[in-house]
C-alpha cells in the first residue's frame, strides 16, 4: 500500500525535473494567428523551409526590447529573413490582431511597431490575459507593404514574445474607394459534389476480415492486417494511422 502512494510522488518529482530540463529553453506562450504572423505562416505551411518554428510558433521568447522578428535570440532566425517570400495580408487602416495563447503570463504591455516607431501600446498593468486576446490598431497614414512587430511584454519575467506580421495597407480588400471593380466576386456556386465521404464500409465479412479505418470493432473481433491476425481487445472505431501493429491497447496479435 505504501508503495502505491510513494511511487506516484517520486514519479512526479523526477518527471517534473526532467520537464524543466526539457522544456525550459522554449516554455512557450503565444503568437499572432491573424492576420498571420511569420511564425503562423510557417506553422500553417504557407511558407516552407522554416525549421523547428513549425512545431512551436508560440515560442519566440527572448529578453524584452528587441526590434527583430525573432526577438534577437539565436533560435528561429529564419523569421528575420526578409528575402523569404512572406505573404502580406491585405488590410485597411484598422487592423484587428488575434493572439493564440498557450500560457497566460501576467502582462505588462502589448506593443505594435512599424520600423522603430511605436504605433500602439496596450497596458494590462500586470493582469493575466484571458485564453484569447484581440487588439484593434489604427494604422492611418501607412500605405503599401509594411512589417508590424508585435511585442508581448511579460510582467514577472525579463522576457517578451515576438511576432512579426506582414501587411499590405490599401491592398485588395480595403477601403480604397475604387468602385468595387472586381465585379461581384464570382461566387462560383461551389459545385455541390458532396465529397463522397470515403467511409468505404469495408466488406463486413463475419469471421476474420481485413482491418479497415472507419470500421467499428468490438472486443473479440478478429482481423487480418499485413498478413498477420489480430483480436480486438476493446471496442473502438478504427482510424487511419492506428493500425493493429501500432495499437497494442486495442489489438492483440493472435
Amino acid at each position: 500500500m505504501r508503495r502505491r502512494f510513494t511511487l506516484p510522488a517520486l514519479t512526479v518529482a523526477a518527471v517534473g525535473g526532467s520537464l524543466l530540463v526539457a522544456a525550459s529553453p522554449a516554455s512557450a506562450h503565444g503568437y499572432i494567428s491573424s492576420p498571420p504572423s511569420r511564425q503562423a505562416n510557417c506553422a500553417s505551411g504557407a511558407v516552407a523551409g522554416c525549421g523547428d518554428i513549425v512545431y512551436e510558433p508560440q515560442s519566440v521568447e527572448t529578453p524584452k526590447g528587441s526590434t527583430q522578428c525573432n526577438g534577437g535570440g539565436s533560435r528561429f532566425t529564419v523569421l528575420n529573413d526578409n528575402s523569404k517570400n512572406w505573404p502580406a495580408a491585405n488590410v485597411g487602416s484598422s487592423v484587428t490582431f488575434n493572439w493564440v495563447i498557450t500560457a497566460r503570463h501576467r502582462t505588462a504591455t502589448w506593443e505594435y511597431f512599424i520600423g522603430n516607431r511605436l504605433v500602439a501600446s496596450f497596458n494590462d498593468n500586470g493582469a493575466q490575459p484571458g485564453a484569447t486576446k484581440q487588439h484593434t490598431v489604427n494604422f492611418a497614414g501607412y500605405t503599401g507593404r509594411q512589417t508590424v512587430l508585435a511585442r508581448w511584454n511579460i510582467t514577472d519575467t525579463v522576457n517578451a514574445f515576438y511576432s512579426c506580421v506582414d501587411l499590405n495597407f490599401g491592398g485588395a480588400t480595403n477601403p480604397t474607394p475604387t468602385p468595387t471593380t472586381p465585379s461581384p466576386t464570382p461566387t462560383t456556386p461551389a459545385p455541390t459534389t458532396p465529397t463522397p465521404t470515403p467511409t468505404t464500409p469495408a466488406p463486413t465479412n463475419p469471421g476474420s476480415t481485413t482491418w479497415a479505418a472507419g470500421k467499428a470493432y468490438k472486443a473479440g473481433d478478429r482481423v487480418t492486417y499485413n498478413g498477420a491476425s489480430y483480436q480486438c481487445r476493446q471496442a473502438h472505431t478504427a482510424l487511419a494511422g492506428w493500425e493493429p501493429p501500432y495499437t497494442a491497447a486495442l489489438w492483440a496479435a493472435v
Binding site: 522544456a23 512557450a28 512545431y55 510558433p57 488575434n98 485564453a131 484569447t132
Partner: peptide
C-alpha cells in the same frame, strides 16, 4: 479556433518531449 490551437500547441510540446 484560438482555444483549439492553444490546446494543440501545448499538446505538441508534450508530444515532442
Amino acid at each position: 479556433v484560438a482555444l483549439l490551437l492553444g490546446n494543440l500547441h501545448n499538446a505538441m510540446e508534450t508530444i515532442r518531449m
